[in-house]
Design a protein around this nucleic acid. Sequence first.
DNA 1: ATGAAAGCGCTAACAT
DNA 2: ATGTTAGCGCTTTCAT
Lengths: 332, 332
Amino acid sequence: MSVTIYDVAKKANVSMATVSRVINGNTNVKPTTRKKVLAAIEELGFRPNAVARGLASRKTTSVGVIIPDISNMFFAELARGIEDIASMYKYHIILSSSDQNLNKELDLFDNMLEKQVDGVIFMGGSISENHVKAFESSNIPVVLAATVDDSQKIPSVNIDYYTAVYDAVSQLIEQNHQTIGYVPNNSGSSIEASKVQGYQDALKENNLEINESFIFEGDDTYQSGINAANYFLGLEQKPTVIMAASDEMALGVIHGAQDQGFNIPEDLSVVGFDNTRLAVMVRPELTTVVQPMYDIGAVSMRLLTKLLKNEAVDEHQVILPHRIIKRSSTKE
Amino acid sequence: MSVTIYDVAKKANVSMATVSRVINGNTNVKPTTRKKVLAAIEELGFRPNAVARGLASRKTTSVGVIIPDISNMFFAELARGIEDIASMYKYHIILSSSDQNLNKELDLFDNMLEKQVDGVIFMGGSISENHVKAFESSNIPVVLAATVDDSQKIPSVNIDYYTAVYDAVSQLIEQNHQTIGYVPNNSGSSIEASKVQGYQDALKENNLEINESFIFEGDDTYQSGINAANYFLGLEQKPTVIMAASDEMALGVIHGAQDQGFNIPEDLSVVGFDNTRLAVMVRPELTTVVQPMYDIGAVSMRLLTKLLKNEAVDEHQVILPHRIIKRSSTKE
DNA sequence: ATGAAAGCGCTAACAT
DNA sequence: ATGTTAGCGCTTTCAT
C-alpha cells in the first residue's frame, strides 16, 4: 500500500490537516513544524494522490483537449502551444482526437466531464447548436482554438480568416494576377466559408469576374492539392496563380504542376495558408498566409486559465494578427 | 450540485450498491430493477464521477504518454496510434512533451504517478538507469515506444534499427555506390548508435573503407539536412549517396543539394528513414526505410492494455518488421 | 438479487 | 498555528 497523508502526519507528530497545509503551501504553518513535515514526507517518499485531492477539492487541475487529428501538422503545433502554457500553469492535458466527427466530439466532451476536467479547449470544424448547448450546460469553461462559433457565445481564439484571404488575394491582384484559382477545403466549416468569401470579395472589389470554375475543392490533403493542379492546368483558360486553403494542399499544387512540366512561379504562382513548417520544405519555397498556430494554442490555454481562476478577461473573442509572407512560389 | 449515485438510488428505490452494479454492468441484477435504475439515470441525467470512482477502485482508466515533442511528425503519428488503441479500450490519455530532457522526463513520470495513471507509454532518446529505476519502482506497467532500453528490463516496441540501416546500406552498395555519406542525429540515443553501427558494418562487410568524413551529424531538423548537403558537397571526394537518419533531414539534403545545382538522383542519391508523409511530399520522391510509426504506437498501447489486465504476453521486447521503399531519389 | 457500511486519500470548514 | 471532523462520490466486502 502506498504512503498517505495520514502516515506522514503520524510520523511528524502532527495532524493530517497540518500535512495538507504544508503540501498546499498554506502559510499558516510554523517554520519548524513545516520542516518536520517535509522531513517526514521525504523520509516516507510520500507522493500526494491527485485523485483523492480532486475528489475532495472538486478541482482536478486537468483540462481536456479535443482535437480533430493530432497527426496533422497544423493541429500538432497548436497542441504544443496549448501544452506549453498548460504545463506552465501546472495543468495536465487529457487529449483526444475527434476526426471532426460530431458525435465523437460530443462523446469526448462528455467523457471529459466524467473525468471532471476543470476546463476544455476545443478544436473542430463546425460548432453546431448542439455543441453550444453542451458547452454551456457543462458549468466548466470551454475555449475554441482556431475554431469559430458563429453565435459568438463560446470564448475563442482565431485570426481573421476573411481578411487574411482577402488581403492575400488583393495583393495577388496588385501583382497583376487576373485569373486566380482557389482551393478551399471541404470541411464545411464557417472558417472556410469566410475564406471563400474573402476570396470572392477581393475579386469583386477589383472588378474581376467571379468564375465558378476557378474554385476546386480539396480535402486538406497533399493529394487533393495535386488533383487541384491537374484540374486547373487542364482548363482552357488556366489561372496564373492558385491559392490553397492549407500549406499541405499548396505543396500538392506545386508538385502537381511541376510533375506536368510547369515551372513555379514562372508559369504558375502558388500561395498557401498557415505557414506550417512545410512552407519552407519545398522548392520553390511557399508564399503563404501566416496563421500563428502555436500562439493560438498558447493564447487559448492562457485564456482558459483566466476563466478557470475567474480573472477578468476583456475580450472573449480574441483575434490574433495574421500576415502574408512572400517567398519564391509567387511571381509579381 | 451535480447528481450522484445516491440520488439515482433514491429515485429508483434501490441501494447505492445496486446502482453501482448496473453502471458497472454487473450481471447480478434483476432485469426489472436494472430497467428501473436505468430509467432513473436517464431521467436525472446522471453521469458517473470518474474521480470518485478512481479513488474507490484504485483504477483511473487513464494512461500517461510521455513524448519528446508532439509537434514532430514522427511522434505525432506514433501518438495517433497510441490514442486510437487507447480509446478502443476505453482508456484516456494524459499527454506531456518532455523535450528529451532527462529531468523533465522524470518529473513528468512522477506527476503521472500522482495522477494515478494505470500505466504509461514512454518515448524518449535514452533510457538511463534512473529511468529504469523510476519505472520499476512505480508498480505500474510502462512500455517504451520507439525507444530502446539497453538493459532490456522495460517492455518495448521497436524495429530493428541496426538491421534496417544495415540493409539499406547493403542495398546501396549492391547498386554500385561506393561512397556513402550518413547523417545521424545527435540525440546520443542507443537507437542512433545502432544505426551508425549498421552503417559501418555494412561498409565493412563489403570491404569498403569507413571514412570518418562521411559522417556528418545533424539534429533531426530540415535545416541540419541542408547543412549536411553543404558539407558533403564541399568535400574533395563527394559521396554518391547520402543517407539521413530521418526523412526530414533527408528532405533538407535533397533541397540543399538542389539549391547548389545538383540533380537528384543523377548527381547524388538520397535516402531517408521513417517514411513519414514527408517522403512523398518532395521531388524526387524519397527512397526511405519504413518505420511503421502508427503501428509502433498502436502495438505499444495494445501491449500496455495486456499488462494492465495481467494477460499473458509472450514477448516483452517486440520488434516490428521494417522494409525499404524505393522511390526516385536513388539511382541504381 | 439486494442492502448496509466501511473505506479510498484528501480538503475544508470549524474549533481551539 | 494546529487539530477535529465531515464529507467528496463511488466501489467493495460482507451479510442477508
